[in-house]
Design a protein around this nucleic acid. Structure first.
Length: 468
RNA sequence: UCUUUAGUAGCUCAGUUGGUUAGAGCACCUGACUGUUAAUCAGGGGGUCGUUGGUUCAAGUCCAACCUGAAGAGCCA
């Protein structure tokens, strides 16, 4: 077979001139045809659309043509021609075909017909070859690029916080332990406690649940930073919105207050959504057509609308008013209790019908590091609530006063013995600062319109599932 | 983890108040077809009805436990 430069299908489909001979490589989606001619729909992952390869059967060995089945990988030399069939404006008239890899039709798990998302989860190693997951993972890449671009353009530094941590007070959830100890022969002291002094780190270590505390250290030096990395929660959560391993973006900015923080969060999400609309329209259109007809209009409305900013106390008042007017909730509403999903959904989907930033929660239901308000009852927390997916961002202005922070740590019985370094930020040159955390996969749920978080990460990690 | 719901061919599903040999579409194989658009048409092969136990003359169907998936809830991002 002649050696020609390979052209990506995304580029071939854009061609306006015809007649040149090129090489194209990709995986066969379908082959159809008649006695004399075969039509091969080829996809190479560069774009959701397939390229049509036309093969006159008289020019090719029958044995080679037989190997061209759904899932096979082929290399084609051929001429770019204008298509006179419907459904594409350009196609390849094949001159030479080489089968790079066959796919036995009896055992290849993907068919040309559609599969359920649940079935595709069982073959997560092959699902990137489907239209749906090709689209999702191209959008996933684009969102990562949008995130880095957004922060870089605004002078934020990408800061790498550790994945292994020995602090057990991040308070964001159950942690996965990291150890090199022999679990069949654990040494314990007289109280039955495990002795970690001979473990790899000389103390108990875990996978991080958040890079925030280290992010605060960086903000106290570099001014504005963000993290973007994997985080781990060992919660037994079985929902379409939770993963045991997920990616989180956590900006942290010196001198920002809660209002700057809200503005940053709103600008940030809008930037990402607009990026998707500007750069991923082919993939979004496919997802909209197959899963969520309102996807694109919902994305557009988020870019255009102004997020509602609402103190928790006001939110509770609205909910209590709704109850008084006859709306029934499964769980009671009252100042001091955390809002249930149904309450958040009511505010976002029924009452305001757009994203809501809820602020100033009671201090009892929020983390120790949040800045305390003058009223002595609330803290400067903010949750960004989105239609369909609920909480997409959680953040706050941080308590910068050493005494107030220390007192709160004591009140909440938080083990801070290994956290002297965190308190040093308040001890030496403390400054007001604020930040938030955004779950990358939650953002992707919103942008792709997918309903289950297991379908927006290549290899989901959930309770009882670490396959692939 | 709790509640609900589902598990029948490779995939998606139907299967009546329990009753003889468990069906369809797609996929796959064979054949037909002069350019198809998830091609079409004809034929063919393919099943331990999630697992274990129970009720019954008789269980895909009823009951129990367990396994697996999904939805809702809690926890959160």
């Amino acid at each position: 077979m002649d050696k020609l430069n390979r052209v990506r299908i995304a580029d071939i489909l854009k061609m306006q001139s015809f007649g040149q001979t090129i090489n194209v490589k990709g995986w066969v989606r379908t082959k159809r045809g008649s006695k004399t001619v075969s039509f091969i729909a080829l996809n190479d992952g560069t774009i959701i659309h397939n390229l049509q390869i036309v093969a006159e059967l008289a020019n090719f060995d029958e044995e080679v043509m037989k190997q061209i089945t759904t899932g096979a990988c082929i290399s084609v030399n051929g001429v770019v021609v204008e298509s006179f069939g419907q459904g594409q404006h350009v196609e390849i008239q094949a001159k030479e075909i080489e089968v790079l890899g066959t796919a036995d039709p009896l055992t290849y798990p993907l068919q040309k017909k559609g599969h359920s998302l649940e079935y595709l989860r069982e073959i997560a190693h092959l699902r990137p070859r489907t239209n749906t997951f090709g689209a999702v993972f191209r959008i996933r890449h684009n969102m990562a690029m949008a995130i880095h671009t957004f922060f870089h353009e605004r002078g934020f530094y990408y800061f790498h916080t550790p994945i292994i941590t020995a602090s057990d007070c991040e308070g964001a959830g159950q942690m996965f332990q990291v150890t090199t100890m022999n679990l069949y022969d654990l040494k314990k002291d007289e109280n039955g406690a495990i002795d970690y002094t001979n473990d790899f780190f000389g103390k108990q270590a875990s996978l991080t649940v958040s890079g925030q505390l280290e992010g605060e250290l960086a903000a106290m030096a570099l001014g504005a930073v963000y993290t973007f990395g994997p985080t781990f929660r060992a919660e037994n959560s079985n929902t379409p919105r939770h993963l045991a391993e997920f990616w989180m973006i956590e900006p942290e900015v010196a001198f920002n207050d809660i209002f700057d923080n809200m503005q940053l969060a709103e600008d940030f999400i809008k930037y990402c959504v607009k990026w998707a609309l500007d750069n991923c329209m082919d993939d979004l259109a496919f997802l909209a057509e197959h899963f969520d007809k309102e996807l694109i209009s919902r994305l557009q409305s988020v870019v255009e609308c102004e997020f509602v900013r609402l103190p928790y106390t006001e939110g509770v008042r609205i909910l209590e008013e709704a109850v008084a007017n006859g709306h029934t909730f499964e769980f009671p509403v009252g100042w001091g209790t955390d809002l249930a999903s149904e309450h958040e959904r009511f505010l976002v989907e029924n009452h305001f019908k757009k994203p809501v930033i809820l602020t100033d929660y009671p201090k009892e239901i929020k983390a120790f590091y949040m800045k305390q308000n003058e009223d002595g009852k609330t803290v400067r927390a903010m949750d960004v609530l989105f239609p369909k997916i609920g909480e997409i961002i959680g953040g706050s202005e941080r308590e910068s006063d050493l005494d107030k922070l220390s007192k709160r740590i004591e009140e909440m019985n938080i083990p801070m013995k290994d956290m002297w370094w965190y308190l040093d930020t308040r001890r030496f040159g403390t400054a007001p600062h604020a930040g938030f955390g955004l779950g990358f996969e939650r953002l992707l749920l919103f942008v792709t319109g997918m309903a289950n978080i297991r379908d927006v990460i290549p290899f989901p990690r959930t309770p009882n599932n670490a396959e692939f």
